[in-house]
Every structure is written in C-alpha cells, then in structure tokens.
C-alpha cells in the first residue's frame, strides 16, 4: 500500500445547530486515512453522520474542527471527485443523457467529446435505450443508476458514494456491486462508500470503517483480506462470516 494517503482525516468534528438553537454533535472525532486506489466502506447507525462526513469531504458542509489533508499532487479535489448522493437528484427538465452530462458542463469540458462516454456509462448501468427519456419516466432504481453514470462521467479519481444502492432491489444491487468493483479495478479509482449493508460493505471493500452512534467516532477500521477479484460466492465463505461478526460486534448489535 502506498504510504501517502490520498485523504487523511484527523479529529474531524461537526456540530449542527438546529433552527430551535439546539446543538447536535454529529461527528465528534473522526480519524481515517484513505489511500490511493483503496475501496473503503463506512457503516454506522442511521443518523450518526455518515452523509455529513462525505459532504465535508466534498466541501459542501463546513467542518467545526480537526483537519483534512488532501494529497493535492495526485489529484485535484475541485474537479476529480464524483459524488453519488443518497437520492438520485436528477434534473426533471433534462433527458437522461443530459443529466449524465451535467458535470461535464459544470466543469466546462467539451460536451460533444463526452457524448459517447455518456452512452457507454448508461449502457454500463443497464440503461441503454433510455438516453432520451425524462427522469420521471424512470423507476427509482433506474434514476439512481443514472445518477451513478453521472458521477462517473468526468472520470473522477475519488468516488464518494452515499448509500447509492439502498433503493435498488436485491438483484440489481448485486449486479451493481459487481459492476462497481469492475469500474473501480479498471479505472483505478479510490472509493469511499457509505452503506447500511454490512455484507455489501465487506464484499466490496479493502477496509470497513465502523462509526459509533452520535456523537460519532471511528470505532473500528477492519481490514478485509479477501482475495480479489471477488465473486458473489465469497459471501458464503467462513472468512466472510467471521468478518461480518466482527462488524456486528463493533456496532454492538450482538
């Protein structure tokens, strides 16, 4: 493993103030290193601040303490991040293909040169033929897959994914997991993946970081030494079972 982390998080803190003036300490003290090319998953109870953590990394939420070091030599955090949000967040007034091309326009990259890539990505997420459809003609699962294609269009080095497959049915979800691993391996991306599926986290990741309930800290960062490339049957191995138990343990769910 390379010794300079792509992102190094230390003592990260976030306190929200609600409209009624109440203080909510979402993140108390988060420490996490993410190395180039790594696939890191984050699991934790709902409301513990997983989304907040991703948004801070994307510069959408201001942190209230701690530091985030980014290896700016190996990637440009202003242009080389892809964010898949919890909701699809498609623009109603754009056809599917134009939704996928949105980041290209924002980053002022030539649109025509990316058209083919957009079509490839739509094919990749199983939406070939839906280029000209409007978002409200698609099911929720299809919309989320469009949003994944959109997050990949500008070929980001770092993917921040916030429960991206949460709304998909089990079968599609498994297919998407395999596709994601393929993209990750071929395109050498670094992925930070938030999920509430423990099996999904272990199946996908090099490392699983378990967050505690609010105010949250990283309870464990579990290395997953399952061989790659992984196929779905790895989940029936005893090794996989042990890892799952460890995660459940640290979530205090046993």
């Amino acid at each position: 493993m390379p010794n300079t982390p792509l992102i190094s998080i230390r003592g990260l803190k976030k306190i929200f103030t609600t409209l009624t003036g109440e203080k909510i300490e979402a993140l108390e003290n988060i420490a996490l290193d993410i190395y180039p090319g790594e696939f890191v998953s984050i699991v934790g109870p709902s409301g513990c601040g997983k989304t907040t953590l991703l948004k801070i990394l994307a510069g959408l939420v201001q942190k209230d303490g701690g530091e985030i070091k980014v290896d700016k030599e190996s990637f440009d955090p202003t242009r080389e991040v892809g964010f898949v949000f919890q909701k699809p967040l498609l623009l109603d007034w754009r056809k599917v293909i134009d939704n996928v091309l949105l980041p290209i326009e924002i980053l002022k990259i030539n649109r025509a040169s990316m058209f083919g890539r957009a079509q490839e990505l739509l094919e990749l997420v199983g939406l070939k033929g839906f280029e000209k459809a409007y978002p409200n003609e698609l099911s929720g699962g299809m919309q989320q897959r469009v949003s994944i294609a959109r997050a990949l269009i500008h070929d980001p080095k770092l993917m921040l994914m916030d429960e991206p497959f949460g709304a998909l049915d089990a079968l599609t979800r498994e297919r998407m997991n395999l596709e994601l691993l393929r993209i990750w391996r071929e395109a050498k991306k670094t992925v930070l993946f938030v999920t509430h599926g423990i099996a999904e986290a272990i199946f996908l990741s090099d490392r699983v970081a378990v967050l505690s309930a609010r105010p949250s800290t990283v309870v464990t960062a579990l290395d997953i030494h399952l061989s790659r490339p992984r196929t779905l049957n790895v989940r029936t191995s005893p090794e996989f079972g042990k890892l799952s138990m460890k995660v459940y343990d640290s979530l205090e769910m046993v």
Binding site: G59, L60, R79, F83, K87, L89, L102, E105, I106
Partner: peptide, 18 residues
C-alpha cells in the same frame, strides 16, 4: 430549489451563473 440540487452542482464548484 431543492437544497440538495444545489449540492449536486456545488461539489463541482459551479459558478454562481452556472
């Protein structure tokens, strides 16, 4: 505008006019 839609373009550092 749904605030989340703003996040969608702001993480890419969209300009105000964009």
């Amino acid at each position: 505008v749904d605030r989340d839609l703003l996040d969608l373009v702001n993480y890419l550092h969209a300009k105000r006019w964009q």
